[in-house]
């Protein structure tokens, strides 16, 4: 049975992890390879690296990081941030990433989704959507949540999938950083509207929040960052809760 995936997210800049795991057993908490190995061994089902500066002059540094991560772990990983062309996608995928994630560039140029899906298959193309609640709907944001665009998040989700996105990474701007739970209403609305898997992001604080994102938010995967990095929760604890609730989880790795 297809498992519900648990995905730690790592922010990187200049090939280094920002706000990384700070454990005694890691020599270098800023090293993406050490972080990746740690989560690989801990049972993460997948990893996401987001290049938060995403300047084009840092491209070679990012590609080098992707290659070093790919040779160090045997689980899939996604890379996002600053991907603006099919060629950018190709370089990252050829360096060993399994999927690329696009957000602002997909909104600016929706054709990029279609071109990427045609070149590499839909399963490689993740469209990340940053959504903020406005009464009974959600607005779409770009540039890491700094700019609002006049687009309904649910309509955009549907369009992204029609254009070839193979997965959606849905972040609630309202919940992000609060540790009070995911926006399950937003997640469920999108999950029911589209045929592709949904990754829930923003708001995880407890094991129950992850269970709720699956059961109420109908998510196919759950993402968290600082919660894992600061060891407030372990992947094992979440998987144990999943199994208790009869949510399929991968326990051998």
């Amino acid at each position: 049975m297809l498992v519900k995936r648990i995905i730690p997210c790592l922010d990187v800049t200049g090939g280094r992890v920002v706000k990384g795991v700070n454990f005694v057993d890691l020599i270098d908490a800023g090293d993406p390879v050490e972080q990746a190995r740690f989560y690989n061994d801990e049972g993460a089902d997948e990893l996401i690296f987001l290049d938060i500066t995403a300047s084009s002059d840092g491209r070679e540094i990012l590609l080098d990081m992707v290659r070093r991560v790919a040779e160090s772990i045997h689980i899939p990983f996604t890379v996002g941030g600053g991907i603006r062309s099919v060629n950018d996608m190709r370089e990252i995928l050829r360096s060993g990433a399994d999927k690329i994630s696009i957000n602002t560039s997909a909104i600016k140029n929706p054709l990029l989704i279609t071109q990427g899906a045609k070149a590499f298959g839909s399963q490689c193309i993740v469209v990340a959507i940053d959504a903020k609640r406005k009464k009974n709907s959600w607005d779409t944001y770009t540039h890491g949540g700094r700019h609002s665009v006049d687009m309904d998040a649910i309509a955009w989700a549907k369009e992204a999938v029609e254009r070839g996105a193979g997965e959606l990474l849905v972040t609630s701007m309202d919940c992000d950083g609060t540790q009070k739970g995911f926006d399950n209403e937003l997640l469920a609305r999108i999950s029911e509207e589209v045929s592709v898997p949904i990754i829930a992001s923003g708001g995880a604080g407890t094991v129950q929040h992850f269970v709720d994102a699956i059961e109420k938010g109908k998510a196919d995967a759950v993402l968290a960052a600082s919660l894992f990095h600061f060891r407030k929760l372990t992947i094992r604890e979440i998987k144990e809760a999943f199994i208790e609730k009869a949510i399929p989880a991968r326990t051998q790795y």
Binding site: L2, V3, D45, Q123, G166, S195, V196, P197, D220
Partner: peptide, 11 residues
Amino acid sequence: GGKIPHMGWNT
């Protein structure tokens, strides 16, 4: 039925 692409770990 379930989501397509079939994406993730399966038995």
